[in-house]
Design a protein around this nucleic acid. Structure first.
Length: 670
DNA sequence: ATTAGGG
DNA sequence: CCCTAAT
């Protein structure tokens, strides 16, 4: 057939190259495939939205903030699980819960009611996380609230003497941070001080940073929390997720959000694939440690460790009665136990939000009480997640790497995690919302309802990996799969040596398409690495940005299990003019329909360009050539090339048509 | 493994 | 770019 076809196209003389064929490895991404897709949508839309926000909000700032200097070679972000003291039952499992904070009102909450009874745990948020800014900016109302939180870092408001259930006395200091600051803070000193090279350390000691926060067992301690973090204990929603997986998360095994690009209207977002990556394992910590970032500093707190150490992965539910929780909600935040990520703040479109329930109640938030009037008409639910924490992430990078590369590396790692290594869970009133088919409204997640009790959790995709629980002391490390480092460069090699610093691949000789970049430029596509799973299973936790020439290696820390690769969407690599030129030239010669040959002829060295990519590029080139110049985006392609595209396309289309006509009769005959 | 198309 | 169906 093939040959026949080629002949038809007119390439009688065509010779099959001896070179290796470029193949696009099949990805095994979807462990859970089809069935799940459609079903997961609704609630998932929300999740997707969140994810998008997360990514967007994060990117810039996040990367920028990282400061290598403090770190040695390794940068570790560790996530601790949070626990509520008394409630401590909650075990952190692998999931991460987002903490939602209701925006704003808190300031006002003087009333004791507003505060959580229990200690709060402070969470340590990943720098990344970030706050989703922009969101709600438009709302004035929100704006106020939001601004309180974020803007004006310097300003801090304090509410003192709030007592929580009498147990704890909490002094809350609100500090407003600008988003940036928050992000920025990432590593700074705050971290340093608490930096855990050794997670363990953290547990025990409470780090006190900044002025105010001290961590420790919180139970009856007086704590000062800055920022919105205070809220919480009550709200803590424990996630049962862990083991639940069966029931819960697993429901849909999966999911990775297909694309993070968000559409403005988040609602339509769909999540498509399920990724199987289970790989991302978070290390469960049995300790309750939590870090909080308060002023930019991260603090860790440990709570009730002993009791909790029990390591029950399970479901710990909230001990707190619902009512109380609500109560507490005023304060606004919901925290989660595990801590994967915190998000703060959920608000509905009106700034009012969060308080809904509570509003009526105790929170004396000024004026915000319940103004239904504010509610959005469109019935859209707006959610603001201030920050997400990312699970433990280890990155190893050469000292010689630039800060910029580190930033990118971290960004990539985070993106990878978010994109495929984690799945998002939705918690409502402490319970996991498992039915993805329900609409938000049906679930109760509506603008005027319960936003305060809404939580998001980042959970590792269910992997088969056994969960390893950490022992107390060794909490750390662990369980994770051992994702292998992805290095795009030499995936295979690197796989074996996780720590190996990678390196640039040496440029190979070019073949025809020399101009085309060879792989090394290319970012590691998960695909590439994963393909060779034979070597090891690497999870692509991290991808290294292509542009960096520097050798970077990111290594996920835990490397034990082997297994699956994370299916991740390949990074986008726009075609350069040179590539377009090569493509056009090849197509002119070979015609359309012979993408493998085009690949071999012109892109043999560009491993990241598959024949499918070339075919797609041609498709887009044809489209581009047909639209007006002003509608074109990206790096402008010389008109001359576009003209050639049209010419070649027309020519080959005609050829193909001829071929078809010619064949038709034959078929009938047959 | 490739190709062709839709998304 | 991804995904699928059809080759």
């Amino acid at each position: 057939m093939v040959l026949q076809k080629r002949l038809d196209y007119g390439f009688h003389d065509y010779q099959v190259p001896t070179m290796p064929r470029a193949t696009r490895s099949a990805r095994k991404r979807s462990i859970c495939k089809k069935g799940t897709e459609s079903s997961q949508m609704r609630a998932f839309d929300l999740l997707a939205t969140v994810a998008d926000k997360l990514l967007h909000g994060t990117e810039g700032p996040t990367t920028n903030t990282i400061d290598t200097s403090t770190e040695k070679d390794r940068y570790t972000v560790v996530d601790k699980e949070l626990n509520v003291d008394s409630l401590c039952k909650v075990e952190p499992s692998q999931g991460f819960v987002a903490e939602l904070v209701l925006s704003g009102h808190d300031n006002k909450c003087d009333s004791k009611d507003c505060f959580p009874q229990h200690n709060e745990h402070v969470e340590h948020s990943l720098p990344l996380a970030s706050e989703v800014t922009n969101f709600d900016k438009n709302n004035n109302e929100m704006g106020n609230l939001a601004s309180e939180v974020r803007v004006g870092s310097p300003s801090s408001k304090e509410s003192d003497n709030c007592e929580l259930d009498g147990k704890n006395e909490v002094i809350v200091k609100y500090e407003l941070h600008k988003t940036e600051e928050v992000l920025t803070r990432t590593q700074d000193r705050g971290d340093d001080s608490c930096k855990r090279e050794d997670p363990i350390i953290w547990d025990q000691k409470a780090c006190v940073l900044g002025n105010s926060v001290s961590c420790g067992k919180m139970t009856h301690n007086k704590q000062i929390v800055q920022n919105s973090y205070f809220a919480t204990q009550n709200n803590v929603k424990v996630v049962d997720r862990d083991d639940d997986e069966n029931s819960s998360g697993c429901t849909h095994p999966v999911s990775s959000i297909k694309s993070f690009r968000t559409v403005p209207s988040s609602r339509d977002r769909r999540i498509k694939k399920v990724s199987a990556s289970k790989s991302w394992k978070v290390v469960p910590r049995y300790r309750d440690e939590s870090l909080s970032k308060t002023d930019g500093v991260w603090k860790s707190m440990s709570c009730c460790k002993s009791s909790h150490d029990s390591c029950r992965p399970q479901k710990s539910q909230m001990n707190i009665p619902f009512k109380k929780r609500k109560f507490f909600d005023c304060s606004s935040s919901v925290s989660n136990s595990d801590g994967g990520i915190n998000s703060e703040g959920v608000s509905d479109s009106n700034g009012k939000v969060a308080k809904t329930d509570s509003s009526g109640r105790s929170c004396s938030v000024s004026g915000h009480g319940h103004h239904k009037s504010f509610q959005s008409k469109d019935s859209h639910v707006k959610i603001r997640i201030k920050s997400f924490r990312v699970p433990e992430l280890f990155i190893e990078i050469a000292e010689t790497a630039t800060v910029g590369s580190l930033k990118r590396t971290v960004m990539e790692a985070v993106t990878a995690i978010l994109g495929g290594g984690l799945r998002v869970g939705v918690l409502l009133q402490g319970k996991k919302v498992r039915d993805d088919n329900k609409t938000l409204f049906q679930t109760g997640i509506s603008h005027d309802n319960q936003l305060d009790s809404l939580g998001f959790a980042l959970e590792p995709n269910p992997s088969r990996t056994p969960l390893v629980l950490c022992q107390e002391d060794s909490p750390c490390i662990l369980p994770c799969d051992a994702p292998e480092p992805l290095t795009r460069y030499s995936p295979d090699v690197s796989a074996d040596h996780p720590s190996s610093s990678n390196v640039l691949p040496e440029p190979h000789g070019n073949s025809l398409g020399n101009f085309i970049e060879s792989d090394h430029d290319s970012a590691p596509s998960p695909t590439d690495t994963s393909n060779h799973k034979s070597t090891v299973d690497s999870k692509a936790l991290v991808t290294v940005p292509a542009m960096t020439a520097e050798a970077i290696s990111v290594v996920p820390m835990h490397r034990k299990s082997k297994r699956s690769e994370v299916a991740q969407r390949r990074i986008r690599r726009p075609f350069s003019v040179a590539e377009v030129e090569a493509l056009v030239q090849a197509v002119e010669k070979l015609g359309t329909g012979r993408w493998r040959d085009v690949k071999l002829r012109a892109f043999d060295n560009a491993k990241h360009r598959t024949y499918v990519d070339l075919k797609d590029k041609w498709k887009t080139l044809v489209h581009t050539a047909r639209i007006s110049p002003r509608q074109r985006r990206g790096e402008p392609v010389p008109q001359e090339l576009l003209d050639r595209v049209l010419t070649a396309h027309a020519y080959w289309s005609k050829q193909q048509a001829k071929y078809q006509l010619k064949r038709q009769p034959e078929r009938f005959v047959l």
